[in-house]
Nucleic acid binder design. Structure first.
Lengths: 232, 232
DNA sequence: GTCTATAATATGATAGAC
DNA sequence: GTCTATCATATTATAGAC
């Protein structure tokens, strides 16, 4: 932590380096990094706990303990519990939407959707907490995310809807409703993150198991792509 | 409430029918019915609120207010908040599993699955709160339902898994993994209940709209059945 | 920036009169 | 069975020393 100091010690020794004057630029930069890393640690703890127990199911104290800071200290970095919740939620929305943004008109339709399923399933494997937190928020009526839903998400989906509709029109896809295709892709891929304990209770396996991941991926790709492949 | 009494009045008039002796059988039966209906009212309020805000997002007071009883009175009918939560959860598990139980080996495979999709989507339309409450519980790791998951649900799914596997073996279905077919059917149908606000933000419509319901039903049946129809 | 102390409140649950 | 206190506790957030 401080230069040439003994290993991090919560109860600081009485004698500490006196720097009552202007701190150097290097010191300021170090402090900045320290604060950022602390904010990140708090965010991470918050994601893990909020995603499992919801906003009201967790206390600031529990988050602080998990992030290894004091409750008061946490409130120094985030003004309130709700602000922290909102912070992590917004942070995750981008991640969650990335695969859809990447769905490009440049690719061959079936290949693009095949790839989308893979990306979304990887997200369910690598960021299950993000998926669950998002799911919790939506279930509760998205009181804090409604604005984003009705603008960013809506616009993005509308754009992709038009793209898929063109694919259908030109005969590259069967005559399906683009909205319901998108919802089906979301639902099936997220299910493996959100309902993880159920999946595990039934099959005894999770996406973290590479063989199971592959099996899920191929099953979804087969079922869903065969369902939208154009009929000749 | 009581026979030939003035309209329900919280502050009862000082003069009330004196029945200090043994109540008649009819009176007892009426009381019984009254208690049952009150329990039902509390359950209903609890489902509505728990399904939106989760166990910790709602206070006993709020549930009592919605059921139009006092907090103390609620605690007379249910010994604690957790017991009430557990009560509604178990009550809903049966409803939620009914369509899967009905999936019968008697029917022609594709028709049976087509019918299952309809039943499950009707459930999402008619009991969205049940679906959401169940989803909340699973997301949180099903602390109170884990037992049921690992026995009733597991056994039921295993039974249906075997049935679907036979269909595949005899060539009535494409070569898909029965587990992932079941998960896909669950995920897609429940999505319209659990993510209702998202669906509504994007499309402006819900399952309560009959035309939209029909459109969802046909889209799902088309996409999913085409994906599992045997290839010749 | 981090801490201790504490205010302010909400909430689950119980006791006891009627 | 229903009500009016009331207890006990948990929890968010702030004040102020260092």
């Amino acid at each position: 932590m401080s230069p040439s100091a003994p290993p991090a010690n919560k109860a600081r020794p009485a004698v500490k380096p006196k720097t009552p004057r202007a701190p150097s630029a290097a010191t300021l930069a170090r402090r900045e990094r320290q604060m950022e890393s602390k904010r990140a640690a708090i965010s991470e703890a918050a994601i893990a706990l909020f995603s499992q127990f919801g906003l009201h199911g967790v206390s600031i104290d529990q988050i602080a303990a998990r992030a290894d800071v004091s409750k008061t200290n946490l409130l120094y970095y985030f003004p309130s519990k709700e602000e922290l919740y909102l912070h992590v939620l917004k942070q995750l929305l981008g991640v969650w939407l990335a695969p859809l943004r990447a769905l490009s008109v440049e690719m061959e339709p079936l290949a693009a959707i095949r790839e989308y399923i893979r990306l979304k399933l990887e997200l369910s494997r690598d960021h299950p907490a993000a998926s669950r937190l998002f799911c919790l928020e939506i279930i509760q009526g998205a009181p804090l995310l409604r604005g984003e839903l009705e603008h960013e998400l809506r616009d993005l989906v509308q754009e992709k809807h038009a793209m898929i509709a063109r694919w259908v029109a030109q005969g590259s896809l069967a005559a399906i409703d683009p909205y319901h295709l998108i919802f089906t892709l979301w639902a099936t891929t997220q299910h493996y993150a959100d309902f993880r304990v159920q999946i595990e209770s039934i099959t005894g396996r999770t996406l973290e198991d590479p063989a199971f991941f592959q099996q899920v991926l191929e099953s979804l790709q087969t079922m869903l792509l065969d369902g939208i492949r154009p009929r000749h």
